[in-house]
Amino acid sequence: CHSECLGNCSQPDDPTKCVACRNFYLDGRCVETCPPPYYHFQDWRCVNFSFCQDLHHKCKNSRRQGCHQYVIHNNKCIPECPSGYTMNSSNLLCTPCLGPCPKVCHLLEGEKTIDSVTSAQELRGCTVINGSLIINIRGGNNLAAELEANLGLIEEISGYLKIRRSYALVSLSFFRKLRLIRGETLEIGNYSFYALDNQNLRQLWDWSKHNLTITQGKLFFHYNPKLCLSEIHKMEEVSGTKGRQERNDIALKTNGDQASCENELLKFSYIRTSFDKILLRWEPYWPPDFRDLLGFMLFYKEAPYQNVTEFDGQDACGSNSWTVVDIDPPLRSNDPKSQNHPGWLMRGLKPWTQYAIFVKTLVTFSDERRTYGAKSDIIYVQTDATNPSVPLDPISVSNSSSQIILKWKPPSDPNGNITHYLVFWERQAEDSELFELDYCLKGLKLPSRTWSPPFESEDSQKHNQSEYEDSAGECCSCPKTDSQILKELEESSFRKTFEDYLHNVVFVPRKT
C-alpha cells in the first residue's frame, strides 16, 4: 500500500485506493498535508475557505447554543480562536489581540433580562453583547459592586439597553466600559436606550469621564423622579442622539420631579488639616426662599486615587461607600458681607490618608415646582503625618564578641513616609551569675543571650482551647457569634421535631 494509506488498500502504491488515510483526505486521495488554498479540518480532512465560511455563517444565523462559528488559524479551520487571539470578521482569520481579548457573548432569543446578581454573573467577562440587555433589578445585597464585577467589562451592545423598574439602582456607572450601543435591534418605538419607572436612579454616568455613542435609535425617559433633566440632556449631547427624540420621548413632568437638581456650584473657602482632623468651610448658599434650606450634607471617604465619582458603590438597598454628615444651616444675616460661612470639623480620621470630599445642599421643593440647590466639586484632601507606631517583631542576635545583629519589621501604621529608623542602645553591667558559677561542674549549661522565638506554653494553649472559665478566673470563653447562636437554635429545633416524629412513629394507638 501507499505510504499515506492506513489499515489496508485495494490497489498497491495508489493513494486513492486506501481504506483510511494516515494524515489527511483531499478529493478522494490521501495526502501528507493540505496544500494551499485548503485548510486542515478536524485533523483528517482538507477543506477550502468557502466550506469553513459556510459553517461560520450557519452557526451565526441559527443562534443555536453550542454550535461553533468556525475560524481560520495556522492553516486550520477550527471552532474558535485560541487564547490571546480574536477573529477578523472580513476573512475569519485569528489575529493577536492588542491588550485583553474581546469576548463576544451571543444571547438566546436576542435579549437577556438581568433581574438578579445570579443572572448578571452569566455575563461575567463579556466585552461584546450580541443582542439586547434588559435591566430589571428590584433589590439585593452589595448590588453596585456585584454588577460592576460582572457587567463592568461590557464595551458594546449590538441591540438596545433597557432599564425598567430597577428600584435598587442609583447610577449606571457599573457599566464602566460601555462605549457603544449599535441599535441594530430596537425596542418598540425605535428606541435604543429605554429608561422607565426607576424610582431611585439619580445618575446615568459621570459624563466628564465617560463617552457613549448610540449609532441608531432614540432615547426614552419616563417616570424617573430623581433623575434630573440636565442629566438626560447631557446624554443626548454626548451620545449623538440630540435631535432624534420626539416631543413625548422625554417626559418633562415625570423626570426629576422629586430630585434636588443642583444648578449652582458650592466653593470651599477654608481648608485646614491635622493628622486626624480636617476643618472645612464653604461659601454660604440661600435659595430664593431661605426657609427652603434644610441644611447641608457632607460626604467623605478614603480615596487612594483621584478618580472618585459621587455615586460609586451606591445602591438604593443601603450600600453606600460614603460617610454622610448632616449639618444645620448657619444663622442668616441681613448683611451679605457678614454672612457666616458654614463648615464642619471632621474628626477621627487616619493620618497621612487622602480623602475625597464634597458637600451639597438639602432643600425642600418650592411652590413653583422649581428645584434649587448647590453642590461642590469633589475635592481631595490629605491629612498630615504623625509619629508612626512601633516597629514590629524586633530580633537581636550576637554573632561574635563585638557585634549584635538587630532586625525588625516595619510598623503596622507608618502614618507617613518613613525615611529612617533611630536605634538606641545602652551598655549593661555583666551578670554576677557568670562569676559565681563553678565551671568545672559536669552538665553545666552556660547562660545564653542568643534570641529564641517566643512560644506559647501548654497552660496558655489549654486556656485558649477551654470553653469555660478556669477556677483562677484568668480566662473566659469568647462570646458566641450570631451565626453560632442561630445554628444552635436550628439544631435544637431539629432535635425537638425529630423526637416528636419518633414518638408518633414508635407509639401507635392500640386498636379498641
Rank of each mutant, 00 (worst) to 15 (best):
F290Q: 04
S239F: 03
W286L: 11
R244T: 07
S333R: 05
L293Q: 13
L153N: 12
K360H: 01
A149L: 08
Y223P: 00
S401R: 13
F193L: 11
E231G: 13
S376P: 02
L107Y: 03
L107D: 03
R124F: 03
K375A: 05
F268S: 01
K112A: 11
E237I: 12
K407G: 04
C317H: 15
R165F: 15
L108Q: 05
S398V: 04
D315Y: 09
K103G: 14
Y160L: 03
G110S: 14
Q121C: 09
S239V: 14
P410H: 08
I114G: 00
N141R: 06
S389Q: 04
N399G: 07
K350A: 11
N255G: 03
A145S: 12
E155H: 12
L294I: 08
K234I: 07
A316R: 15
N224L: 03
D249H: 02
G152M: 05
N307L: 13
I357C: 15
E109L: 13
S319D: 15
S166C: 11
Q121N: 12
T273A: 06
S338G: 09
R165L: 06
S274K: 12
T383C: 06
C261Y: 02
T127V: 04
K226L: 07
V359R: 00
G125P: 01
L133G: 00
E246C: 06
P342M: 10
T361Y: 04
K350C: 13
P351G: 12
S192P: 02
G243Q: 09
G183A: 05
Q382V: 06
S119I: 15
E237M: 12
S166F: 07
L229R: 11
K407V: 13
N387L: 04
V128H: 14
H222A: 04
P351D: 02
L133P: 00
Q339C: 14
Q203D: 15
Q354Y: 10
S400K: 15
I114N: 02
S376G: 01
I232C: 09
T127Q: 09
L298H: 00
W205H: 05
A259Q: 14
Y167F: 14
G183H: 02
Q354M: 00
L151N: 01
E184S: 14
K177T: 13
N320S: 05
T113W: 14
W286E: 05
A374P: 15
K234Q: 10
S239G: 13
R244G: 08
D249R: 06
W352Q: 15
F175D: 00
K267M: 09
L133Q: 00
T215E: 09
S166L: 08
G313A: 09
L153Q: 09
I134H: 00
N136F: 08
I134V: 11
P411V: 12
T113K: 12
T113L: 11
H233C: 14
W344A: 10
P336M: 02
Q245T: 09
L331D: 13
C228T: 03
L161F: 04
I135Q: 00
V359Q: 00
S119E: 11
N190L: 08
S338E: 13
L108Y: 10
V325K: 15
S398Q: 12
A385L: 01
L252K: 09
V390I: 14
L147K: 00
G139A: 03
I379G: 02
S208Q: 12
T118L: 04
D384R: 08
T113F: 05
F296L: 02
I157A: 01
F358M: 05
R281V: 03
R176Q: 14
W344T: 06
L293P: 07
C261M: 01
V238F: 09
I357V: 12
S398L: 03
I405A: 05
L219N: 03
E146Q: 09
C228V: 04
I154L: 09
L279D: 07
N263P: 11
I214D: 00
L161S: 00
Q314V: 03
S269V: 11
Y223V: 12
I278V: 14
L345H: 07
G110L: 08
L227G: 00
S192V: 08
E184F: 13
R247D: 06
I379E: 05
G131H: 01
G256W: 02
T185H: 15
S398Y: 11
P287S: 07
N198T: 02
D257R: 06
I114T: 01
T113Q: 15
F221A: 15
P391V: 05
G125D: 09
P394G: 06
V359W: 01
L123S: 01
T353W: 02
D367H: 11
F193G: 00
D249N: 10
Y194Q: 09
G183L: 01
T241D: 13
G313Q: 13
S230T: 07
L178S: 00
D328F: 07
I157D: 00
Y300P: 00
D292C: 06
T323L: 11
S269M: 07
S239K: 03
A168R: 15
K350R: 13
I395A: 09
V363S: 05
D115R: 04
G183F: 03
A356L: 02
Q216R: 05
T118H: 12
P394Y: 08
D326C: 03
G140L: 14
T241R: 11
E148L: 06
G125L: 12
G217M: 01
K409S: 11
E187P: 07
I135V: 05
H233N: 06
N211A: 13
E264T: 11
G131E: 01
K267F: 09
E236C: 11
R281N: 12
E283L: 06
F220G: 15
N334K: 15
E283H: 07
S321A: 11
Q245A: 13
V397L: 06
C317E: 14
K234T: 14
D326P: 06
V381E: 08
N255W: 05
D367T: 10
G240Y: 15
D393V: 12
T241G: 15
K409E: 14
P287D: 04
D289G: 05
D377L: 02
R179N: 05
Q121K: 10
S116F: 10
K301L: 07
I357H: 00
I135N: 00
E264S: 13
L204V: 06
G125W: 05
P304T: 10
F175V: 04
F268L: 07
I188A: 11
Y300E: 00
I114V: 10
L123K: 00
N307I: 15
P329V: 06
G348K: 01
L204I: 10
D206W: 04
D249V: 11
L133F: 04
I214S: 04
S338K: 12
I188Q: 04
V325L: 11
L204F: 09
C317K: 01
R202P: 01
R281S: 13
Y160E: 03
L172H: 00
S132D: 04
K301P: 00
C126N: 00
P394M: 09
E187L: 07
K177G: 06
N307D: 10
I404C: 03
